[in-house]
């Protein structure tokens, strides 16, 4: 006979309560531990790097001498590349998301595109890099240019933008669409004056997160030939003489923040590792600021609409 007595029951309850408390602490410990380790690492990197961060560091070009080297070309390059990336990926990604959610007939074709996007999102970034090396650098003849880099990263973050756009649109309840159609609006009128504005917060959150990923991405740019040693800035987009604007900068060679950092880590001399730490702090700040921005946008817009 199995003992079902009160005493045994109380013992079991005591055990279960203890187990729950233990797991609560294990969970907290693991999470807090992970963050503590991360903060320790960042703190350590900051200690090494921050003394190196000054105005010269931001406005010097790379140099053979660690003490004189800076990240001028790198941060300007990062901004130029991300600009190209954004111009390519945002319209293409949002348009695809809108098409799949609002237009695409449910059938084999939209299922194909859907599957395709899911798989594209799982393709390692380095694969985009070698694809771009063959296609953009050689076959299209775009060489190791800002345009190549921007397009490569644009394709890379496209799936992220598509997926978040779709998720944002999906949160809009159907009665909003029906209300618009009932007033005689066409599909595009419904999309442009209701769907996109209402999902704007969600879309922007995804876009900002995607761009922060692009800023930190290193591997594909290494393969399409970003050079670490660039001692000049891209051609200015505006000129004093006619035709006043120039797209020459798109075809210029470039370096970006993560490449610069990678280059410094890869050198054997300890002084360059200090530069790497400093560049790491700047890079980390850039991505964290973008992510904080994304969280802020999401928070703002979550409060705005209540269905």
């Amino acid at each position: 006979m199995v003992d079902q007595s009160q005493a045994r029951l109380m013992k079991q309850i005591k055990f279960l309560k203890a187990q729950d408390v233990v797991f609560w602490f294990v969970g907290l410990f693991v999470l807090a531990g992970a963050f503590l380790i991360l903060f320790a690492l960042i703190y350590d990197m900051a200690q090494t790097g921050i003394p190196r961060i000054n105005q010269e560091f931001f406005f010097n070009f790379p140099s053979r001498f660690a003490g004189k080297a800076g990240i001028y070309a790198a941060w300007v390059g990062s901004l130029c590349v991300v600009l190209v990336t954004a111009l390519l990926a945002i319209p293409l990604g949002v348009a695809t998301g809108v098409y799949l959610e609002e237009y695409a007939p449910k059938g084999w074709f939209s299922r194909l595109i859907e599957l395709n996007i899911l798989n594209l999102a799982g393709v390692p970034s380095i694969i985009y890099g070698i694809m771009a090396l063959s296609l953009f650098v050689y076959q299209f003849g775009l060489k190791q240019s800002i345009l190549t880099a921007g397009m490569t990263l644009g394709l890379l973050i496209l799936p992220i933008i598509i997926v978040t756009t779709r998720e944002a649109i999906r949160t809009i309840p159907n009665h909003i669409r029906e209300a618009s159609y009932a007033l005689g609006a066409t599909k595009w009128q419904t999309v442009s004056s209701h769907i996109i504005p209402y999902s704007f917060g969600g879309i922007m959150t995804g876009v900002v997160i995607a761009l922060s990923r692009a800023i930190g991405e290193t591997a594909p740019l290494l393969t399409v030939g970003a050079v670490a040693f660039i001692a000049f800035l891209p051609t200015a987009p505006v000129m004093a003489t006619a035709p006043y604007v120039s797209a020459q900068w798109l075809m210029d060679p470039y370096t970006v923040m993560p490449i610069q950092m990678f280059n410094w880590i890869s050198r054997p001399q300890e002084e360059f590792h200090v530069n790497a730490a400093a560049a790491g702090i700047v890079l980390l700040s850039m991505t964290l600021v973008l992510n904080a921005l994304a969280i802020f946008i999401r928070y703002r817009f979550r409060k705005k609409y209540k269905w």
Partner: peptide, 21 residues
Amino acid sequence: PMLELLAAVPTVVYGYFAMQL
């Protein structure tokens, strides 16, 4: 959100952590 930030750290920075620390 902190977990999301963990995911946002660029991989090259993680590489630095692994090698240097």
